[in-house]
Amino acid sequence: MVIHRLITRAARVVHKSAAFNKTSCLNTQIVRLISIGRCNFAERLYTNKHEWVEVDGKIGIVGISDYAQSALGDVVYAQLPDVDKTFTQNDECGALESVKAASELFTPVSGKVVAKNNDVEDTPSLINSSCYDKGWLFKIELNKETELKELMNETQYKEFLKSNEH
């Protein structure tokens, strides 16, 4: 991840530098090469409210963490955001009902919803049985990629869970 960020940052510096702008053709090629590389680094990032997002290119897949699904208990109803709706980071974008409680759902990143998981709407228990795979909630087209820097990676999230601050 760190290496990846370094590469991306380096690419941006290169992109901005006047010398390279003169040879913009070469420049575009470098950026493209690196952005293709980015796909291979897809990693699950977490918020302190226990949502996760896995980014591939400009599309983020969003779900809730294992800690969250276990804290919620059996999910009996999932209200997911409608496709084409636009949200800003941390906006309320849906809700999950479990053990008589409706828990608001928040988007970990800003962007436009491009898909929602119909299987989860039909079978909400997928969130409990497979929160990182079949129980994903929606896909969002990111419009502010810098927000990803504020999120925690797997190791940081595990530390955060230990810290009792959640």
Partner: peptide, 21 residues
């Protein structure tokens, strides 16, 4: 265990909740 209030086997109250950020 369902967070109902009961006297014997009869319910005198249920429970509901809303959780935000």
């Amino acid at each position: 265990d369902r967070d109902d209030l009961v006297i014997g086997d009869s319910k005198v109250s249920g429970t509901a909740a809303k959780l935000g950020r």
